[in-house]
Design a protein around this nucleic acid. Sequence first.
DNA 1: TCCTATGTGTAGAATGCCGATATGAAGCTC
DNA 2: GAGCTTCATATCGGCATTCTACACATAGGA
Lengths: 106, 106
Amino acid sequence: MKLDTLRGHLDALVLAVLEPGPLHGYAIISTLRTRSGGTLDLPTGTIYPALRRLERAEYVSSDWSIVGGRKRRTYELTAAGRRALASERDTWKAFSNIVGGVLGTD
Amino acid sequence: MKLDTLRGHLDALVLAVLEPGPLHGYAIISTLRTRSGGTLDLPTGTIYPALRRLERAEYVSSDWSIVGGRKRRTYELTAAGRRALASERDTWKAFSNIVGGVLGTD
DNA sequence: TCCTATGTGTAGAATGCCGATATGAAGCTC
DNA sequence: GAGCTTCATATCGGCATTCTACACATAGGA
């Protein structure tokens, strides 16, 4: 499956995996890979720019730490991020209903 | 809803509305608008380049005609187009399951 | 006469995902 | 101790695709 397909929906996915609690970039990638049964394998060149974009939009905030001698940047949802996630869920529902309806895959 | 959201899925929608029978560009726009309850209102600058792309890929073929004094270019699915549509439906199912699953909107 | 609907089309800008590449530490195997 | 894999962050250029804005043209109703 062409992963370019998720263009425009990546932010929603990232916000969703951050909902239960903070994660760092690499963990976000593996969480998404696990949750999708291996199908969704985001390259780092996709996730890190996305996180910077989300941070600029103030949907997430980040903190540096050192774990096992490795530098980690951990991201956390802000209040605005939670609102954005709710809105993204609504958008997704509307979008998937429309596409599913037109394609006849309901 | 940002229509940019459908990036990567437009081809599937166009192929789907062409499935029952040939249509011209303008009719494709209004069909999609009707079927989406008005939400999907594609600009001509989106649909015409998309149709040329689909024709280059040989998923559709086109024929000119004159109806009511106006020139019309009517597009029809090819055999390859029907196969592509089937494949797009599979892609959509996989994609929407994954996104719906991660977002928790099932 | 003008506006709206019908109908096709292009050019340029913006968006944003991806591939390639770079850096570096930890830990394991041979 | 050399080399490999995993963990971890990051940038840059390329590229495909959608959107905005424009241009052109006919038919028909107000």
